[in-house]
């Protein structure tokens, strides 16, 4: 029996994401590097009470449509860009561990609305501690100390200890049930490469969960990925799903 981590559909890939699960959501905030089809499949399944980690609180469907129009002359948004905001809008999210939960300026993410209604909980972190806490989970490290955040809301209620006269805050690893990530190419062993700034939180989150799901543009034969250039070794990846060639709406099966 040959190893084959490629799963036939997004619906199948997310079928065991249950109520109350903790999810790392890859991407950064741009329209390219987001695991849109994995997010859409979870939104169709509609689990409740999820804890999510990621950079952005998420725009949601309506704001992405507005941005697509507004930024058309600057940055083309793909038709099939769906972000964490969709999961918030579908009522799936109970807690966010996020670095960018508040939209810029006067805009408001769906998650902010939820917070204001008292229907969600936020743990605000800088991107560095967020990324390192996720990396720590991948590496089996329970917790680490960093000076970043001491004296601010990011360190509230956390242990403080001095090293070399500088106060550090103890940050615990964030291990999720599932990591939802976007990559460029995979092979059937789950080796991954990324494209440009698409690496970002996606490569960070690979392996930081019980199950890592990678949404990719293409699966290539074993040996086609240059072993010198594999970014995420397949040992960190449990499932690979290929994006459809033609864009689909989030509520269509994929």
């Amino acid at each position: 029996m040959a190893i084959n981590k490629v799963v036939g559909s997004f619906d199948e890939a997310v079928a065991d994401i249950a109520d109350g699960a903790m999810l790392h959501i890859g991407g950064f905030g741009g329209p390219g590097e987001c695991p849109s089809y994995l997010i859409a499949a979870v939104a169709r399944r509609k689990p409740r009470g999820l804890t999510v980690t990621g950079n952005l609180g998420g725009w949601g469907v309506a704001m992405i449509a507005a941005l697509r129009e507004r930024l058309a002359a600057m940055l083309p948004f793909p038709d099939d860009f769906y972000d964490l905001g969709l999961l918030v809008e579908q009522g799936c999210v109970r807690k966010g561990i996020l670095a960018f939960p508040a939209a810029p300026g006067n805009a408001e993410f769906p998650f902010e609305l939820l917070l204001r209604e008292g229907k969600a909980e936020l743990e605000l972190l800088g991107q560095g501690s967020l990324a390192e806490r996720i990396r720590a989970a991948r590496a089996g490290i329970a917790a680490f100390y960093t000076p970043v955040g001491v004296g601010t809301v990011a360190a509230e209620g956390k242990e403080i200890r001095e090293f070399g006269g500088v106060p550090h805050v103890l940050e615990h690893a964030l291990r999720a049930d599932f990591s939802l990530i976007r990559a460029y190419k995979a092979d059937r062993w789950g080796n991954l490469i990324y494209h440009g700034t698409g690496r970002t939180m996606n490569a960070t989150m690979a392996g930081a969960a019980r199950v890592t799901l990678a949404e990719v543009d293409e699966v290539v034969d074993l040996g086609e990925l240059d072993p010198e250039c594999v970014v995420t070794p397949g040992i960190y990846v449990e499932r690979v799903v290929v994006r459809p060639k033609q864009p689909k709406r989030w509520d269509e099966r994929s």
Binding site: F28, G32, F77, E132, R135, T200
Partner: peptide, 27 residues
Amino acid sequence: DIFLINASVQPVSPRPGMCFFAHEESF
């Protein structure tokens, strides 16, 4: 290029010598 954006989600141009890395590496 949606895969060549800065942290303000603005498109930037490629340049010889540039490189990409994961978030934990960046920090």
